[in-house]
Design a protein around this nucleic acid. Structure first.
Lengths: 101, 101
DNA sequence: CGCATTCGTAAGTGAATACTTACGGTAAGC
DNA sequence: GCTTACCGTAAGTATTCACTTACGAATGCG
């Protein structure tokens, strides 16, 4: 859930902005689309991607749809990345040590 | 240096594989392309993206070009992500507290 | 010098994707 | 019931992007 999808979901500028807005406060689609140089349907599609990546959750409130960050997905993504960097750096250090010999 | 470029650089499967190989040991382009289902020029192009993201560095060795992980870039990317997740989660918690009142 | 190795890049192609407009469907207010 | 607000999705388009083949430049070796 938190690997390829997560990277791809946050690789887009507009989508990352939407995610950060949803993190600031749970908001409706129309609210998230305000002052954003893309149309509301575009925001809907971006939210769909963030949903599939497990980074946000949705909740109906009357006729509006509220999106907010899913802390579990964020946590999972964060842990995956920590392991990712750890592997990269530990392998690098190992290679550096072998270089010295 | 470590934001949009970093996300986009690691969003691609092939590129992430190449990065992990370069992390395991400094390698030439041809070595990185071995047993990879893309051609060597494709690997060259991927390395260019990783370079611009500051995740790897290159060094000439005779006629070969050795690529290895840049720990500074990795560290910078990691710190950027830590702040990114922290902002997202802290805003969520703040919103959750206001919800309780 | 001739030839092989290694690499980067230009040019072209097909697929993914970010975006738009148009439309239908559901909930709220009169 | 009718209109309005809010939203998701289908369809189409333009751009991005990952990939290939073809070529030229730089290094090493005989």
């Amino acid at each position: 859930m938190a690997n390829q999808l997560g990277f791809a979901a946050l690789a887009d500028d507009t989508r990352r902005t939407i995610f950060e807005r949803a993190a600031r406060r749970p908001s409706s689609v129309g609210k998230l689309a305000e002052d954003l140089d893309v149309t509301r349907p575009a925001v809907s599609q971006h939210l769909k991607v963030l949903l599939r990546a497990g980074l946000v959750v949705q909740r109906r409130e009357g006729s509006r749809c509220i999106y907010q960050v899913d802390p579990r997905g964020v946590q999972a993504m964060r842990e995956y990345l920590d392991r990712f960097w750890d592997r990269a750096l530990s392998a690098f250090k190992l290679a550096a040590e072998q270089e010295d010999m």
